[in-house]
Design a protein around this nucleic acid. Structure first.
Lengths: 242, 242
DNA sequence: GCACTTCATATAGCGTTGCTATAGGTGCTA
DNA sequence: TAGCACCTATAGCAACGCTATATGAAGTGC
């Protein structure tokens, strides 16, 4: 079996890499395997992708498109926090459906260097959290909320991947998910009764204003003024009053 | 610089591996580098440790001893949940202090295979959560609580490692930590006022009894009876009433 | 004191890895 | 037809994890 024939070598390489990666079971995939399956010799790979990591990045980019498509698949429910909930579940499901690809995307950690893909996923979640912040439902700036939730989301997904498929307990994921969302949301967004979370209303209002400015692109202030203003706003948002 | 001289080759190999690992900055460390620094040839490594992974496992085991020592360093405060809080912070600090070692320990994920080290860390946390469960402070069986908290703990630590040191925001870790602990704890253990979490008192009592049996080793029941009894108890504990 | 076993280390090299210096073929534009 | 990019192949390098084999050292039984 190979991809010889009709398709251009670049596409054949991408497909071969994706296929071998999916079948690898987590072990390494060699460039020779890939080029052989693609019906191509080594220099072709390096001409198109620079190096092995470049090829994998390209595969990841395709995988991320799929990932984003999954995340955007559902129409916004009008309840941003409910959307975040589904986003979490989609994330976990993507990891369990394609563990090898997921591990290449989120499992290749190196100190002090964040893969582009992670930043993208974070931006995606932050974007959604911004809507919640505009609605005054967020206790924490969207950026910080996104980072925390995503960290827990990745951690939970990695843990579930290490478990044998029949033993995976998705209720743990649901519990962690709800705990994280609960933690970043204001009382008015919560199902249960009111409760003092230690955040003053000024902080919540500052967060909402900040988020609203991010989406509306107001031109009342000059760019330099706006920059400083946002900086102050962020300082207020992150001041803990507890 | 090398470890030639007095110490036995096995120790020299361990030290050389640990040192190179710490200085690697996350990139791969070759057996040739290790053996050269240890002043030893290749077969010596394979005689003592079987293969490269065996050597790394040995390094990890030493690292884990240090890790456990850190975790046990503080005397139990009598408030198990407070101890969990400190355990979380120790975990994060260990990861940030020794990122390369931490990544070898917790970052080498493979589908459907959990490293021994992770199971050990989980057992350590479960052991501490058992105390909370005995005190009726747990909303969830200790095993499940430990798994969730540890997953979030690892996820958060990995995320912090990818950030550049000056930008690391430990408040995110604290927030996530408290969110997870809050989620698994019963209302009576919480600082803020009472709140219905949807868990009936029978579930909480079952969890407490289960945990108490784990530590006390009661001999009122035969082992076969106990096994069945515990199974039922666990079934009650995990029945969600929300 | 001497053969014998056992453990520990060295010499040398196998097969595979990621990657590349160099050259040749192909198709388009002038 | 000439020239010029673009793309691909031949062949091979250095580094990798690992091992078949041999040699030395240390203990043991007679």
């Amino acid at each position: 079996m190979s991809f010889d024939g009709q398709l251009p070598p670049k596409v054949r390489l991408l497909r071969a890499a994706a296929e071998l990666l999916a079948a690898s079971g987590g072990s390494a995939v060699s460039t020779r395997q890939i080029t052989q399956l693609a019906g191509v010799t080594a220099p072709t790979l390096y001409h198109h992708f620079g190096d092995k990591e470049g090829l994998f990045d390209a595969v990841i980019a395709a995988g991320f498109e799929e990932f984003v498509a999954d995340e955007r698949d559902f129409a916004p429910s009008g309840q941003p926090l409910e959307d975040i909930r589904r986003m979490w579940d989609n994330h976990v499901q993507f990891g369990l459906d394609q563990p090898e690809l997921y591990l290449v995307m989120f499992g290749n950690i190196r100190p002090e260097s964040r893969p582009v893909i992670v930043a993208d996923a974070e931006a995606l979640m932050e974007e959604m959290l911004n809507k919640a912040a505009v609605a005054g439902q967020l206790n924490v700036p969207p950026k910080e909320a996104a980072r925390s939730i995503l960290a827990a989301n990745v951690g939970m997904t990695l843990m579930l991947i290490t478990e044998k498929a029949p033993e995976r307990n998705l209720e743990l994921s649901a519990m962690t998910r709800d705990a994280m969302i609960f933690a970043v949301s204001t009382e008015q967004a919560r199902d249960s009764g009111p409760e003092d979370t230690g955040k003053s209303s000024v902080v919540v209002a500052a967060i909402a204003l900040n988020a609203a400015l991010q989406v509306s692109n107001s031109d009342q202030l000059s760019s330099s003024e706006l920059k400083l203003f946002l900086e102050w706003l962020h300082r207020i948002s992150t001041s803990s009053t507890s």
